[in-house]
Design a protein around this nucleic acid. Structure first.
Lengths: 216, 216
DNA sequence: TACTTGACAAAACAAGTGTTCGGAAGTTAT
DNA sequence: ATAACTTCCGAACACTTGTTTTGTCAAGTA
């Protein structure tokens, strides 16, 4: 058995289950899977379902009909009301941002994102960071907020981005403006001064596409 | 048949189904219900399930095992990962806040709230408003944000509230401070001046307990 | 009274459905 | 190459489960 990967057939079965539950609200039977995926025998389906269960992708409820359930992937998600993104760490101005590619995303804590904030279909390559300190308050982001970032290397003028200043080795959330020969990183508060720097000194790590704040 | 009410037995069955799906993630079978509720016959269960379906409480999927699903009440909700609150309208500084008690909450658009922002068990008497204009930007709240408010008449010092200034007939989001003989409504931005007014001129409509912002 | 309707009961029926088993074919490791 | 393991196949088996049928009984209702 592969370590953590599904075979093509297993992926096909898994996607079928996800789609079935999304559309019908109930689990498919083994024979549903067999018929619609043109699999020769129910035993093959059963065998691969066992593999999927060992991979933690599904849960089989022994001996009961339509007993497949999806841990962590529920009908509400599938109805596109919410999605999930990994919470990759904490960001503080001045400290380096953890590199999203270096982290085992499947093991990271998951944050629920309502479709009203970011539609689930636009949630690929999105991760979350918890803001520590009030150093981004000028960008309407407060201590304890959770920011949602889409991983990208470029940005349009005016977008809020997480920018890595290489020389300073600091990451900061600012509005991004490309000007003649330089980059302007503009706080949202007019009492704060913008940062001007050379384009080569800036790496965009992601663009802020949502904020969640709890004041309880 | 009653117009819209469940009989005791139907309510019992309905609650059993909800509990079953919450705990097991799959629908119960008719015989599960019969056994655990000590009902004499499967046909009685089937009969009452038909009634529940006509009431819109459940959906029966014809002839397939464990085919009961709950419209609008999903496993994710039951697992307390999200809740819902009604979106009662738009708030703009200067315009009156719609009175939450006057609105048919059951008909209002529902906003999904992640447990990370407000735990579902604390979501009673909470409603949402969409912020129009940038007049609350000093309170870290921007145009288009959705604010979550708990309906309450009083507040502690420092809490952010929706306050109704009676004479001015204006609603504003500010931090609330009770001082000697007056109320101070403090913006979060030090460049803005606080509002001082007489306690009789202020009615607290609710306290801000969460913010959702989409920048897409 | 006679008729209708809602609610329930018991049993049997007919599918639906998960499981098992012997064996074949392909893959990987030694 | 040989062994060990994975994956697949076809069929049968046995249990699970929704449905149907035939009644009973009480409460309305004309």
């Amino acid at each position: 058995m592969r370590k953590h990967e599904m075979s093509d057939r297993q992926a096909e079965i898994y996607q079928y289950i996800v789609r079935f539950i999304r559309e019908r609200g109930i689990s498919p039977s083994i024979r549903d899977i067999q018929r619609d995926l043109h699999i020769s025998s129910t035993s093959v389906v059963s065998y691969n379902l066992d593999v999927l269960e060992k991979l933690g992708k599904i849960v089989r409820n022994d001996k009961i009909s339509r007993g497949i359930s999806l841990p962590g992937l529920t009908p509400t998600m599938l109805r596109n009301e919410i999605g999930r993104v990994p919470l990759l760490g904490t960001i503080t101005a001045g400290s380096p941002l953890p590199d999203p590619e270096e982290i085992d995303i499947s093991r990271a804590e998951q944050i629920v994102v309502p479709a009203d904030v970011v539609p689930p279909e636009r949630l690929t390559n999105v991760y979350a960071l918890k803001v520590r300190g009030q150093s981004m308050i000028d960008a309407l982001i407060d201590d304890g907020d959770i920011v949602l970032l889409r991983q990208q290397e470029t940005a349009e003028n005016g977008q809020m981005v997480a920018a890595w200043l290489i020389d300073e080795n600091a990451v900061t959330l600012k509005k991004f403006y490309r000007e003649e020969g330089r980059i302007r990183l503009q706080p949202a508060n007019s009492t704060m001064q913008p940062i001007y720097t050379h384009p080569d000194n800036v790496r965009i790590r992601g663009r802020v596409i949502g904020v969640l704040r709890s004041l309880i």
